[in-house]
């Protein structure tokens, strides 16, 4: 097996670049929306909060392929949301990003939410006693004190997004050269009997996973 030759083939580099682009976009979305959603989920109990909590947690407990199917029904051209959108979401880059985002979101939100409900609540009270409102307290006190939880949640979400297959298959369609991420390309390679290429692709994902593992270890999250 010529590892370098397979690594430089467009069949390998294209899914690699696609995966990196998807991770960059969904990672940014995870960071921003994950922090805000975590904060929202620590607010007073309400029906809206319960609905948001359910939607965020669902990908953790619901099979990915079924989650992908529901999203396909909603975001497809004839879907409830899809028909109101000016661009096609499914079988395109945005579809792959959404799949990656949805899969990783609970792993970002839940640890941060738990941290925000913990000991830092006492610090939040002190901040309010010292004259800061809720937003000032969040940015100046809470966020700096849960930054390690944010970082570890973010790395976990990245790891989940990297390995995402089920939802991506439904929303992205596994179109060669367009929506086939690294994980899907391993499946494609095995399906067409290219075991050596599948091994190289797995090795690339293995390196990513190792980096994420080391990062998590440094953050003492695993």
């Amino acid at each position: 097996m010529d590892f370098l030759q397979i690594l430089t083939q467009s069949q390998t580099t294209a899914p690699l670049w696609l995966t990196l682009k998807v991770l960059a976009v969904s990672g940014t979305l995870h960071l921003v929306s994950g922090i805000l959603l975590s904060y929202y989920l620590t607010s007073k109990k309400s029906t809206m909060r319960s609905v948001v909590d359910f939607l965020v947690t669902m990908p953790l407990i619901f099979p990915p392929i079924a989650t992908g199917f529901i999203l396909l029904m909603l975001l497809g051209r004839a879907g409830l949301i899809g028909q109101a959108l000016p661009v096609d979401i499914v079988f395109s880059f945005p579809g792959v990003v959404i799949a990656s985002f949805v899969a990783g979101l609970p792993l970002m939100v839940k640890p941060v939410e738990a941290a925000l409900r913990g000991d830092v609540q006492r610090l939040a009270e002190i901040s309010q006693v010292l004259g800061k409102n809720n937003w000032q307290t969040f940015w100046l006190v809470l966020l700096p004190n849960v930054r390690r939880n944010v970082a570890s949640g973010w790395f976990l979400a990245l790891g989940r997004s990297l390995g995402e297959v089920g939802i991506t298959l439904m929303l992205g369609g596994n179109i060669i050269g367009k929506t086939n991420t690294l994980s899907l390309e391993i499946y494609n390679a095995v399906f067409s009997g290219e075991f050596e290429r599948a091994l190289v692709l797995s090795a690339i994902i293995g390196v990513f996973s190792l980096i994420i593992f080391i990062a998590l270890k440094r953050l003492s999250a695993v």
């Binding site: 009270e125 002190i126 309010q128 006693v129 004259g131 800061k132 409102n133």
Partner: peptide, 9 residues
Amino acid sequence: PTCKRKIGL
């Protein structure tokens, strides 16, 4: 609200 009461605690 707490933040508007001038308290030392």
